[in-house]
């Protein structure tokens, strides 16, 4: 896969302290990183801080990237997610609602790569929508709402084992669906 190979080249250059690699990484994943941070935190300044923090952490810790633990995109987004949830959990007031309706309109400036990415985004949304409501909510509340397993159990009025089961089965189904369309 070209994108993945390019990403691996970027990661190697990043570990070699090449600023152009950081620039390339931001061009590729800055927008989705900001989107994710904003979705979790609900306000722009906090999302900016998290993205800046995450890219600098990636820059400083690029040597810790291991391909066998996921691709560059999932590595970077996991840093963004971890930091955003960390910030969210220090707050008490804001917890975002489950996923809003998500219809992205491709901009006129979309490149061919972005157009392909948009198709993939549509596939991911479709995959999530195929899940039963309880599984989808469990995944969304954990990932975007920063809820822990025990908070989820309490919120949804189910045992911990049910939370774990919904999460596992839901993500396995998504993986199968995404595997089929990619």
């Amino acid at each position: 896969m070209t994108v993945e190979r390019d990403d691996n080249v970027l990661a190697e250059a990043l570990a070699a302290r090449d600023l152009s690699a950081l620039s390339g990484l931001y061009d590729r994943y800055g927008r989705v990183s900001y989107t994710l941070a904003y979705r979790i935190l609900g306000e722009p300044e906090a999302a900016e801080d998290v993205v800046q923090d995450a890219f600098l952490a990636a820059w400083r810790g690029a040597g810790t990237f291991r391909r066998e633990r996921g691709n560059v995109r999932s590595w970077l987004l996991s840093i963004v997610h971890h930091r955003a949830v960390d910030v969210l959990r220090r707050r008490t007031a804001f917890r975002p609602a489950p996923l809003e309706a998500a219809d992205h309109t491709a901009s006129e400036l979309d490149t061919a790569e972005e157009a392909a990415r948009n198709v993939e985004r549509g596939s991911v949304r479709a995959a999530l929508e195929t899940l039963p409501e309880a599984q989808r909510r469990t995944i969304e509340l954990a990932y975007f709402g920063g809820y822990t397993q025990s908070e989820l159990a309490e919120l949804m009025g189910v045992p911990l084992g049910t939370v774990k089961g919904r999460m596992r089965i839901g993500l396995q189904k998504m993986r199968r669906v995404l595997g089929a369309v990619r």
Binding site: L22, S23, Y26, D27, G30, R31, V32, S33, Y34, T35, L36, Y38, R39, P44, A47, E48, V51, Q52, F55, L56, R67, E68, R69, G70, N71, R73, S74, W75, L77, S78, H81, L99, E100, A102, D103, H104, E120, R121, V124, R125, A127, L128, I139, E140, Y143, F144, L171, M174, R175, L178
Partner: peptide, 27 residues
């Protein structure tokens, strides 16, 4: 690693937002 890639795909379910133009420069 395989699960992490599926989880990272969840970010694609959100409508894209443009970060501020100067964020890249600051980073």
């Amino acid at each position: 690693g395989e699960i992490a890639e599926v989880v990272a795909a969840l970010a694609d379910t959100v409508p894209l937002r443009e970060p501020p133009a100067d964020l890249k420069d600051r980073i």
